[in-house]
């Protein structure tokens, strides 16, 4: 059942993307929606290394992740030195600019897309092995993000997110923390990109645009920001819903608008009815002594508290 395998792989990939994006936007409060461009960098670098330089594919995927890691540092460093909103502007600029740029480079396929990317595992061990690989990476990512946010590093992120000035007053380096979290999240997205490239074997610059940004953001918001399982559930729900709708046997004249309305409808519904998402974030750093009625930081806020 290739169909089921494809859905499982896409769910796995989007779990990786949504989890790593939640690390950036939720846990660290960095407002950036350019996550797909690091996904794209990972995908293209991995594909080109494997295709042109015959680099072993696992190594190529890791190089893709490393490339995304490095380029995200380059974007974050200058923009984070100023302050929050500049990262949003700089990263969107980087995303859209790089997409336009990629469309004009013939050697990576240009606007027509990159074809004939070498496959990995599928020919030797069957498609199921790739599903297992992607799901394993997804589980590892979720566990890694959980480990990172529940340890001392997470405490630092929470402190900086909630009050950057106080955080700096304690002698901590906010810039360093922001850049490192941004880079870790983007590096993970890069690995996901490599995994995408060697299964689907075709990349096109346009597929990594703002539509994908909003899809990943929707997954995080619907699932529940700043929770371990929220992005996972968000990714699963938003991958399965559009597929489920096609099984209702609706005529295309209804199917089309319904698919189009679904994403925006879900976002609106959650913004009004349940802004914290399906799973509400626990205030993990409120401490055991926090009593009901006491201010609980910004743990229940939406996007605006970044």
């Amino acid at each position: 059942m290739d169909y089921v395998y494809t859905i499982l792989i896409l769910i796995g990939l989007f779990v990786i993307l949504a989890s790593s994006f939640d690390l950036v936007i939720g846990h660290c409060g960095l407002i950036s929606i350019a996550h797909p461009i690091f996904y794209a960098i990972g995908a293209y670098v991995s594909a080109m290394l494997a295709k042109e330089a015959a680099v072993p594919i696992p190594l190529a995927i890791l190089c893709g992740g490393a490339a995304a890691f490095v380029s995200s540092v380059l974007v974050a460093l200058p923009s984070l030195r100023v302050s929050g909103d500049y990262l949003l502007i700089a990263s969107i600029g980087f995303q859209l600019g790089l997409i336009e740029f990629a469309k004009h480079i013939h050697s990576i396929g240009g606007a027509g897309g990159l074809t004939n990317i070498p496959p990995f595992l599928v020919n030797d061990y069957g498609r199921l092995s790739y599903v297992a690989l992607v799901l394993a990476v997804a589980v590892l990512t979720v566990l890694f993000v959980r480990w990172l946010t529940h340890g001392p590093y997470g405490r630092m992120m929470a402190a900086m997110r909630d009050d950057e000035l106080a955080f700096s007053m304690l002698g901590r380096n906010a810039i360093w923390l922001k850049v490192s979290v941004f880079a870790i999240g983007s590096g993970i997205a890069g690995v996901a990109g490599g995994l995408y490239a060697h299964y689907f074997r075709f990349l096109e610059p346009d597929q990594f645009g703002l539509l994908q940004s909003s899809a990943i953001l929707t997954m995080v918001v619907v699932g529940g920001m700043r929770t371990t399982m929220g992005p996972v559930i968000g990714a699963i729900v938003l991958q399965i819903l559009p597929q489920a709708i096609t099984f209702f046997g609706l005529p295309p004249s209804i199917l089309g608008p319904l698919q189009g309305l679904m994403f925006s409808g879900l976002v609106l519904f959650f913004m009004f009815a349940r802004p914290q998402g399906l799973l509400a974030a626990p205030d993990i750093w409120a401490g055991r002594k926090a009593k009901a009625g006491e201010p609980r930081g910004l743990a229940k806020g939406g996007l605006a508290d970044g």
């Binding site: 897309g113 689907f200 990349l203 597929q207 539509l211 096609t246 295309p252 089309g256």
Partner: peptide, 9 residues
């Protein structure tokens, strides 16, 4: 009939 959104994925 299925939707592609003209998007590869």
């Amino acid at each position: 009939v299925l939707d592609t959104q003209a998007d590869p994925q």
